[in-house]
Structure formats: C-alpha cells, structure tokens
Design a protein around this nucleic acid. Structure first.
Lengths: 341, 341
DNA sequence: TTGTAAGCGTTATCAT
DNA sequence: ATGATAACGCTTACAA
C-alpha cells in the first residue's frame, strides 16, 4: 500500500480512501491511484484489514456431514449467498458435539469468522449454542432450541409431513409405522407431529402409530425396518413413514433383501427429496425441502445480521425467522395395501 | 493479551512465548499465565497473528459443484485432514472459469489462505492455474495440466477404466459405445484410454468405439444415450461405457423412458462409485474411486507443502504425487448381449 | 481535499 | 529468563 501511495505520489490514507470508497478523493488522483494499483498489481492484505476493523468478512458453516446430499446442497446455497456478498465460507465439521461447542466458540472468538450458520442434524447441546450466540450471530437451519428464540430458517416440515402422511392414509393404510428422526431434534418432532395430525385426520388414533427413532442415516432405516417388518404378516405394517429419505432408502434396501416388494407389500415414503429419491426403483414419494434455497436464505440472513450489528448504513434488518415452503412429491412408492393381507 | 500479561504480572512477550511454546519461560510463570488466560478466557486474535506471521492457517478448497456427491465427499475428506491440523477450510465455488481464476488468485494474494486444493471437474484454464502456483502452493485432485507437473493426487483411473471395460468385453459385447467426459480434461482422457486398451485387448479395433463427449452431468448422459441408442436395433450398441456414474444414471433413466431394459437390452457401466450407484435398479457396475480419501490426501499434501515452504522444523517433504488405488465393483448392470439381437 | 500519525493484537529482536 | 519496543499493513481521527 505504501508502494502504491509512493507510485501514485499520494499518501497512504488517500489510497485507503479509494480502496474503501469512503472519504473524498479528487477524481484525477483516484484514477492515478487505481492505475498504480493495477500496475503494481496490489492486493490488500485482508489480515491487516480484519485486524483493524475487527471483523473477518467470513462466516462459518457448521455442517454435520457433507456425505448427506441434503447438507451438501445446503452448503452449496450458503456458499452462493456468501460469495455474492464477497464473504468467505469456512467449513466446520463438528466431529463430536463436544468439539463442536469448542471449535465454534473459538472460531468466533478468534475473530476468524463473523458469525455462523449452524446445521445440527444430530444431537444438540442448547446450552453451548446459547453461549455461542452471545459471542456472535448464529443462524440455525431447520432447527430450533427449546429455550430461546434464535434466528433461523425453517421449513414447513410439519405441513409437509401431514400431507404426505395423509396421502398414505388416503390410500387406505391402517397399520402404519413411523421411522422417526433422533428424538429431541426439532425436525424430528415436527415431522412426527405432522404424521400424527394426518393420522387423526384419517380417523385413526395417533397413539396407535408405532414410532421408532433412527438417526437419519441409511443404516438405521434398514435396521428399524427390519425390526418393524419382521412380524407375522397380519401384524406387519403396510406402510412406513420415514422422517428422511436416507432412512427410507435404508428401509427399501431392507425390503429388497427380505423379499418384500415396495410398494405392493409395504408402502414407503421419505422426507427431503434428495436428488437420488427420484432415481430409485420404486421412485420414492417424499416431501421436497429446498435444501440449497434454505442454505442461501440462512447465509443471507446471517450476513444481514452481521451488517446490521456493525451498523452499516443502508441495510434494513431482515426478519429473523424465515419459512420456506415444502412440496410433497408423489411418486411410485405408495399404493393401497394389498388385498391379500 | 495485554490484559493477560497484566493479570499475570508479566510482560506481553512472555505471554506470547507461552502461547507459542517458543522462548524459555520459568515454569511457575507459565502456570500463572495459563491460569490468567483461563480466568479471562482469553482467545488469541488470529487476524493479528496472521498479519504478523504472514500466513492464514487456512486453505482454500475450489470445488465445482457440491451437488455432485463425488465432490462433496472429497470436500469432506479435505475438511477432515485440515481440521486435524488445525487448519481452516475456505470453500470456493468458481461460477465460471473466468471468476475462478480471479477469485483464487485474489484469495491467495490477499493472504486469506495459504494454499489451495483445486478440483477442476469442468473446463480448465492451465494458464491461470500456473499463474496461481506462482503465488502459492496448489494441489490438484484427479487432474493434470498438460504443460507442467503440479503436485496432485491422482487415481489409477486408467487401470480402472480398462478393467471395467474388459469386464464388458468379456461378456461378449462387440458393439460398444462410450459416453466420455469433457474433452481436454485429464480424467476424461485417462478413462477413455483405459477403455481403448480394453478394446484392443479384446481383439477389437479401438478406433471403432463410438465416443461421444458429455459434461459429467446426469443430463448429458441421458441426451447422449438417446443419440446413441435411437438407431435400428441391429446397429444399436449393446453396451455403454460411461465416464462417470452421473452420466451412467442419466443413460439408465433414458433407457427406462425409452422402454429399453438394462442390462438385457443395453449393458451400462459407470465410474466413481458414488453412494447412489449401488442403490439403483439395476445396481450399477462401476469403478470405485475413494473420494473422501483423495480429498484427505490432497489436503494433507497441501498443508505439508505449506509447512515445508515455511521451513517449519521437523516436517519431511511429502512426495508431490500421490496415487490412490481404484477398485472395480461389479454389480448388475452388465450381462451378455441378448441373443435376440 | 489531502496528509500525519496513532493504534489494531501479535511476534520477534534486542537489551537486560 | 524476562521485558521494552519496533514492526506487520491497514483504518481513521485529526490537522493542515
């Protein structure tokens, strides 16, 4: 920067002014400075800027597992929103929730990021999260913590769950089981609540729904399906409501291995509509959550919060709660229960 | 830090010494300082450290599309390796290759990252890449640029391609077509070369292989399959060698829509073995590339290069070329050409 | 409108 | 073994 100043025969502060577009600079000088920057191909040292301005123009993205396409797409959306505003995205994969707590807090404290987009997905430790929000802005995606009202982007998961479950009940299923998500997760609760509503709406007793909690991973879907379906044919559920696609896929895989056909023997629905859902045989009926869009919204909201907190001029505070629509997509994995039953 | 020094009644330099474990510090003082840090829950300001040490302890990860599971898994591996060494990962999604060039170069120059893991996947602009490597370390994944020998982690793609193609030829296919990757990409060339070797090995003329280049995305697989298969049954290829799984899936989808059955009417193989490959009907025969492992290796190599360049003590330079093994996995998408032909 | 100079929180080079 | 102190590259009062 000194070099640029020297080369353009001005002082460093003038250079700084043109760099930040604040402070008044005569047009001819500005031009000279810009030219000098180009000639010397000067690139501002962001570490120094960050030090001075006490900010990093970077956000953290805490995501449990990029192997899950839903999260990967979400990450993509976050990245897109951030790069649009020249904000960097720092990837964090909390191995354990212990570490998550630490690494997040440290990340924020160490001034390497200005805020965090937080996707929990697995178990939650609200206390540490609340702690986090005291250090800096955090936005949750598809999650809420019981005690406190954190900014977040949510989906209409409950409605989606209700609707797809209704679809199943409308097909005439009476003996329906649920492969649910981890208990205590908000997403799990919402989806389950939706299923129960549909159940009641179909004139059935929601308390008679068999519910087993999985961990949102494929394997647990298979395990639980086995548990649920290894009973006499008369008692065997004719439909499985799975709280996400991965578990639904696991369930389908189990059925294949057990010689049960889907949907003839058992109807199965999922949740999320990850890209693979439409490619399976049978094509999976599910509820589409716009993963990438949700990531985009979350990052946009977070960056907005950061700017507002910084008192940047000309930025309106965004509502701290965003609701994105879901859409139930009916494909081939549901049919009326077989007469043979 | 000043506060810590004051609280522990020592000078800032002493605090700095214990923070970095360099410089000699009396044990009792060290203990006092550590205690003070804890009490004040002090967190070093990384921007300041970065400014001073001229490094960011962060690496960039340039990845074309997180929606592609192969890349997502790779990213996961990169993150894992990096976090193991307390290095941050900054995500970059080059929208266009123009921007890629710029944003990468700027990222490196602006001192926000110390190096870059680069996954091209789509078209390449070697010139800008070479430029990049002059600014800082870059490691390529599953890619090479013609002119120059960059550090990279490569897979035995050629062998894999040869072996899976052999499997197809061994099944008796004579009329085989290739849905290849983007021309000019190293991965495409390698795979194609492998296919040709297998072709020759089967006593067929490699120049008679029909080859059409796609873009590694699902859609192009479908389009090209249509082009290839919409001919009289006598001339229609009985097997499709697809340069990645996504295109293979596209091809399978096309076949389904066209009433062609796989593998009876046309055998199809892919490449990569993304998780979905084994879940399709028919289960896709393909070549497994250990995506996450490759990412891990790449980040490990990059970080090693950075440390070596920094002259850090006790670090041995890693070989700048890593070769990871592939494994062909035979599933159900191949069978001998139908007699009916 | 422009320049001077005082930090931002560290690290590293010296004396002590 | 410890403590002043000068950078690191930038921003921003404040002065000119």
């Amino acid at each position: 920067m000194k070099d640029v100043a020297k080369h353009a025969k001005v002082s460093v502060s003038t250079v700084s002014y043109v760099l930040n577009n604040n402070g008044p600079v005569a047009d001819d000088r500005r031009a000279r400075i810009l030219e000098s920057m180009r000639v010397l191909n000067y690139e501002p040292n962001e570490s120094a800027r960050n030090l001075k301005r006490r900010s990093a123009s970077a956000i953290g993205l805490v995501v449990p597992d990029l192997g899950n396409q839903f999260f990967a797409l979400l990450a993509k959306g976050v990245e897109r929103a951030a790069s649009q505003q020249d904000v960097l995205v720092v990837l964090c994969n909390p191995e354990t929730s212990e570490e998550a707590e630490l690494s997040n807090a440290r990340l924020l404290r160490s001034q390497r990021v200005d805020g965090v987009v937080y996707l929990s997905g697995f178990d939650e430790s609200p206390a540490s999260l609340i702690e986090l929000t005291k250090i800096g802005p955090v936005v949750l995606v598809d999650e809420r913590v019981p005690g406190i009202n954190l900014p977040s982007v949510l989906s209409e998961a409950r409605r989606g769950a209700r609707e797809i479950a209704s679809h199943v009940f409308d097909n005439g299923h009476k003996n329906v089981a649920v492969i649910s998500g981890p208990t205590a997760l908000w997403t799990s609760e919402q989806r389950l609540a939706g299923y129960r509503e549909a159940c009641a709406g179909a004139g059935l007793d929601p308390d008679k729904l068999k519910v087993v909690a999985g961990d949102y991973r494929m394997h647990s879907g298979a395990i639980i399906a086995e548990k649920l379906l290894s009973v006499s044919k008369a008692k065997r559920p004719t439909a499985l409501l799975c709280a996400n696609d991965l578990m639904a896929i696991g369930a389908i895989e189990y059925c294949k291995s057990a010689g049960l056909s889907v949907p003839e023997d058992v109807s199965i629905v999922g949740f999320d509509d990850i890209p693979i859902a439409g490619l399976l045989t049978p094509r999976l009926s599910t509820v589409r959550q716009p993963a990438e869009e949700m990531g985009f919204q979350a990052a946009t909201l977070l960056i907005n919060m950061i700017k507002v907190a910084r008192g940047e001029e000309g930025v309106e505070k965004l509502p701290s709660q965003t609701l994105v629509p879901v859409e139930v997509v009916i494909r081939d994995s549901v049919c009326p229960p077989s007469k043979a039953k």
